[in-house]
């Protein structure tokens, strides 16, 4: 293992692993299997819970480190930024649970939206790692699970457009690459501006909340139904919050 004296390398390795895990989402497509809407919905519910749990931890730490106004303003700015990316790409108007209804152009837009979404997650991960490397690594591993869940939706769309096997895996991982890049960049830059940590944590929390509310949660309800979605989201968020106790 790379030594703790080179934490940027550790962050790079862990976040590349987390983004690379999304390749597993291509497995059903590789075997020519279509993922049922219920499984996709529950995957989105799991992803939502993990992101909400991470958002809770980030906002809690942001409020500890900065004035509430800065943390909340950064979170609202993140929500505005995410809303703008949705408007620009139209990504939130597309339903990955009905992949056949998505045209080729819309598929590209969905990939761009997925990449921008991954970038915001990267900011959140990088800030979490800058705050507490041990906890951040555990969170990155949880994010790997989340990437597989969300990747299933994108893989279904790609498979419906005729993309096959390895190409699906490459494209899904490629769309998650901004997560690793932004995590490393934020982790490397934050020590130079420690005063920005609270704001960046708030930004990460706000982005994660808005992404869940506009993308993953509506898809979870459509595929998994309200009872299963509520149960999976609550359990996943609770498990992620418990990670703090497990790590320390």
């Amino acid at each position: 293992m790379v030594g703790v004296e080179q934490p940027v390398s550790v962050v790079l390795a862990v976040t590349v692993l987390a983004a690379g895990a999304a390749a597993l989402a291509a497995l059903p497509a590789a075997f020519g299997r279509r993922v049922p809407a219920l499984a996709l919905g529950l995957g989105y519910a799991l992803s939502t819970g993990l992101m909400l749990g991470l958002g809770f931890l980030l906002m809690q730490r942001a409020l500890e480190r900065t004035g509430g106004l800065l943390a909340v303003a950064a979170a609202l700015f993140a929500a505005l930024y995410t809303a703008w990316t949705h408007r620009y790409t139209g990504g939130d108007a597309l339903d990955p649970l009905e992949p056949e209804a998505i045209s080729a152009i819309e598929g590209y837009r969905l990939m761009i939206a997925h990449g921008l979404h991954a970038a915001s997650e990267g900011v959140a991960l990088g800030a979490a790692m800058a705050l507490d490397l041990q906890l951040g690594i555990a969170l990155a591993l949880a994010m790997a699970v989340q990437n597989v869940c969300e990747g299933l939706g994108l893989a279904s769309v790609l498979a419906a457009r005729g993309v096959r096997g390895l190409d699906v895996a490459i494209l899904v991982v490629f769309s998650d690459a901004p997560q690793a890049l932004l995590a490393v960049a934020v982790f490397a830059v934050l020590p130079e501006w420690p005063g920005a940590l609270g704001g960046v944590l708030g930004f990460g929390a706000g982005a994660l909340l808005f992404l869940t509310l506009t993308e993953t949660l509506p898809a979870a309800y459509r595929g998994g139904g309200r009872a299963a979605t509520a149960a999976v989201v609550s359990a996943a968020a609770g498990a992620l919050i418990l990670l703090q106790a497990v790590v320390h």
Binding site: M59, L63, G68, L69, A79, H86, F210, P218, Y221
Partner: peptide
């Protein structure tokens, strides 16, 4: 809420009200 409002609007209303609650709690 999702039955009658677009997710984007739901996200905007919740972000604003949640933010206001956090500020209220903090100050």
């Amino acid at each position: 809420a999702y039955e009658t409002l677009a997710p984007r609007r739901v996200g905007a209303v919740i972000s604003a009200s949640l933010g206001a609650m956090i500020l209220l709690q903090h100050y």
